[in-house]
Each structure stands twice: as structure tokens, then as C-alpha cells.
């Protein structure tokens, strides 16, 4: 019985190869808005399943989860499309869900952690929607060197990617530190390896998308010149700032209490 439960949950907290369920659905959903919605719902469904089925999680499963996370983080190094990159990092992140101490957390807290962790990826998908509408695609080779003509979009992309790759003060960094302090040395090393790969993937992503000479699509002058709307940029940055404050609150929690 436990195996069936674990199998069901592994669709939502992916374990390779069940991770294909999410990646295939994501790939075949052409509409970026639906893909973005799926990104919000998927981890919440996983948490809900964990608390309703309450399976026993064997120790070997955490190694499998770590392997899955490592695999997708590694593969995200070379992805060339913003939506696809977000999907692979999303799978890598969700795999680590198996390491969460569900037995010591309330369901509400777990839902909150899932929401906060995946929030930057959702935001990146929104930026991908803008890029597809503006440039016709979000392929890195075609739209590279964005900072020349699109400084506001570049700023938003940079901040979002930093939040995704668990840079402080965003919450994922402190969640990672909190998780590391509750695991064995071997598991901690593997998690830090994953964190390093996220960083590498993020650096390559920014290098190709924002820095360097302009991409082919931009160079032709066939695409629109208007940057991300100023008012929307303000709203977006306020949301990311709130996320940063949530991260600092998580840090405060780690130090053992409140203000």
C-alpha cells in the first residue's frame, strides 16, 4: 500500500523517471499561462497528498530524490528556452521536497514553504510570457544581450534568477540552510552540490540572456522596442522585495525566535 502511495506522490514530488509526468505535461501545454498555473498547483497537490496519505518515507528514497534533483539541475545547465529552463529547475527543486520534515510541520506551513519556494519560478514564467509576446519566442540565442535595449526586463530577470538559485536574502537560501542543518553530512554535501549546479545554470542563463552581444532576433530590429512596462516593473519589484523580507523572516526563525 505504501508503495502505491509513494508512487502517486512521486508524480508531484518527482522521482526520476516519474518526473516525466510533469515535464511531458509542461511540454505539451503550449499556453504559458496554463504552464504557470500548473507550476502553482503542482507542489500544493503534492503537499496535500502527503498529508492525506501520510506515507512512511524510507531512507533510500531521499537518495533517489537527491539523485533526481541533481540530474535535473545538471541538465538545466544547457537548456535554451526560458520556459523549459524553469520547468527543469522546478523539477530539481520539487524533488528536494522529499527531504522536508513533514512530520514536524503543520500542513499549512508545508503549503507555505511550497508556495514560497516555487514563487520565483512562477514569476520567471510570467516574464517568459512577456518575452514570447514581445519577441515571438524566449530562446536564449535569439534574444540574448537584453540589457542593451531592455534594462527593466533585464533587471527583473536577474532578480528572479537570483531568487531561483537560492541567493540570500530570498527564502530558498534559508530553507536550504535549515534543511542542511537537519541532515547527515553526506546528504548535506549532495544538497550543496545541487545548489552549486543551480548557481552554474543561473550564471549561464544570465550570461546568454542578458549579457553579451544582442541576439539575432533583437539585432534584426523586427521585434518591438518597448521595455517591460514601468508600472508593472514597480509592482514586480515590490513583490520580489516582499519575498526578500519573507526570506529574512525565515532567517530570523532559524536564529531561534522572533523580534
Amino acid at each position: 500500500m505504501n508503495t502505491v502511495e509513494l508512487l502517486i506522490i512521486s508524480m508531484f514530488f518527482p522521482l526520476f523517471p516519474s518526473s516525466m509526468v510533469y515535464t511531458l505535461i509542461d511540454r505539451h501545454l503550449g499556453n504559458m499561462w496554463i504552464r504557470t498555473g500548473l507550476m502553482i498547483v503542482w507542489p500544493q497537490a503534492g503537499v496535500a497528498l502527503v498529508y492525506s496519505l501520510r506515507p512512511e518515507i524510507p531512507e533510500w528514497l531521499t537518495f533517489w530524490a537527491l539523485g533526481t534533483s541533481l540530474l535535473y539541475a545538471f541538465r538545466s545547465l544547457v537548456l535554451n528556452e526560458v520556459g523549459a529552463w524553469a520547468a527543469f529547475v522546478f523539477v530539481s527543486l520539487l524533488s528536494l521536497g522529499w527531504l522536508l520534515p513533514f512530520e514536524h510541520m503543520g500542513a499549512e506551513q508545508a503549503h507555505g514553504v511550497a508556495l514560497i519556494s516555487t514563487f520565483p519560478l512562477v514569476m520567471l514564467n510570467l516574464l517568459a510570457v512577456f518575452m514570447v509576446n514581445r519577441f515571438g519566442s524566449s530562446y536564449l540565442g535569439l534574444v540574448g544581450g537584453l540589457v542593451h535595449r531592455y534594462p527593466r526586463l533585464s533587471t527583473l530577470l536577474s532578480v528572479t534568477v537570483l531568487a531561483i538559485i537560492a541567493t540570500p536574502p530570498f527564502p530558498l537560501f534559508f530553507l536550504l540552510v535549515g534543511l542542511l542543518s537537519q541532515t547527515t553530512l553526506g546528504t548535506a554535501l549532495a544538497m550543496l552540490g545541487i545548489w552549486y549546479l543551480w548557481g552554474w545554470a543561473g550564471v549561464r542563463f544570465l550570461q546568454r540572456l542578458i549579457l553579451g552581444p544582442e541576439g539575432h532576433a533583437l539585432g534584426t530590429g523586427l521585434v518591438g522596442q518597448a521595455d517591460f512596462p514601468r508600472a508593472m516593473t514597480g509592482v514586480y519589484l515590490i513583490m520580489m522585495a516582499v519575498l526578500g523580507v519573507v526570506g529574512l523572516m525565515a532567517a530570523l526563525q532559524l536564529t531561534g525566535g522572533g523580534v
Binding site: 544581450g145 540589457v147 542593451h148 550543496l192 545548489w195 552549486y196 548557481g199 552554474w200 550564471v203 549561464r204 550570461q207 542578458i210 549579457l211 553579451g212 552581444p213
Partner: peptide, 22 residues
């Protein structure tokens, strides 16, 4: 940003720093 090398070597520095961060 116009120089590809600037971005490339900036990436080298960040990745080396991140090793130390680990």
C-alpha cells in the same frame, strides 16, 4: 555587456566564489 569575454570571466569568478560559499 557588449563584450562576451566580460560576461564569461565574470561567470568564472562567481562560480569560484560559490565553491567557497559551499
Amino acid at each position: 555587456v557588449a563584450r562576451r569575454a566580460a560576461g564569461r570571466y565574470a561567470g568564472w569568478s562567481l562560480l569560484t566564489y560559490r565553491l567557497g560559499d559551499v
